[in-house]
Simulated scan of single mutants.
Amino acid sequence: MTPRDAADANDNRWSDLDRPPLNGAALRRALVRDDGLWCDVEVVERTGSTNSDLVGLVTKENADEGAVLVAEEQNAGRGRLDRQWTAPARSGLFFSVVLKPVGVPVTRWGWLPLLTGVAVATALSRSAGVDTSLKWPNDLLVTVDGEERKVGGILAERAGTGAVVVGIGINVSLRADELPVPGAGSLALAGATTTDRDTVLRAVLRSLEQWYGRWRDAAGDPAASGLQATYAAGCATLGRTVRAELPGGRSLVGEAVAVDGDGRLVIATEDGVQEPVGAGDVVHLRAV
């Protein structure tokens, strides 16, 4: 085999038969409807970051709500706090969507990453048979060999004045020797009934459409839409002792007791104070 043949084999979308490419045309037929949220589903072979691409598209061309961009591989994927998200090509789902919550006060837009977490966790449980819980504010957790592992994450970014781009990354078929960091997992390692990415992506986008519609119809009210109660029921952070690393270098240790109406995590400290946390990195210390 010549060097060029080897390179072509590595770039071949079918080089790993366990990881077939997504079918963009089939996804569009299944998800794009005149009366639905999703207006387009584009699948690209490789990009830096689907979130960056869509934020740029919204800013420059005012992309429509419901645009979906999926990448088979990202080489500059980002999570919260600018953490890098890397994975082998076609081993997961890496995609972003454009949402424009007209009629919802901007003060309630902070619920969008939590809403997305509920939608994704629901879809993974139904489509892949994997019990999925939520780590506040935006991590997706599964159990692998009795241990809690991160299988995915969510990143929401404002785009212009009236739009939010929500990015979702899910490890689907990663094997143990491919995990990027300790504490990571995948649907396959969690015993998923399917690792068909087309099936999982359809389920996630349909679930997100349903939850977003319910929340938007309630003008973003997390209680009236059922979002706040559902998030709390699926949140693995609540009831545990946690350490929150807060902006400015301060840390807070206590029991996570609630998610309030603004989507903030309420932490009860040993001195009896309950402090809401709206931003920060939360570490699970132990169960209570």
Rank of each mutant, 00 (worst) to 15 (best):
G66M: 09
V164N: 04
G152H: 10
R175L: 03
L99E: 00
A71F: 01
K135S: 07
P137A: 15
W136Y: 02
P105R: 09
G77V: 01
F95Q: 03
V70E: 05
G103R: 09
L187H: 07
I154Q: 05
G129R: 09
V70M: 05
V172D: 04
W136R: 02
G110N: 01
S127A: 15
G66A: 09
N171I: 07
K100P: 13
L179Y: 01
S127I: 00
I168R: 11
T132A: 08
G162W: 02
W109S: 04
A67P: 10
P88A: 04
T122N: 14
V97K: 12
R78L: 13
G152R: 09
A89F: 07
L99K: 01
G167R: 10
T161Y: 10
L115Q: 13
E148Y: 00
A159H: 08
V68A: 05
G153D: 02
T193H: 00
A89C: 14
V106I: 00
W85T: 06
E157N: 10
P101K: 00
G167W: 11
E147W: 02
I154P: 07
T107G: 14
E157Y: 01
R80A: 02
T143Q: 09
V172P: 12
A184P: 13
G185F: 05
L93W: 12
A188K: 12
V70F: 10
L124F: 07
P182C: 00
S173N: 03
A119C: 10
V118R: 08
V118S: 10
R83I: 02
V98H: 09
D139C: 13
F94V: 02
D177N: 14
D82F: 14
D139S: 12
G185H: 04
N171V: 08
A192C: 08
E157H: 03
I168T: 14
E65L: 01
G153V: 03
V172L: 04
L112E: 03
E157D: 04
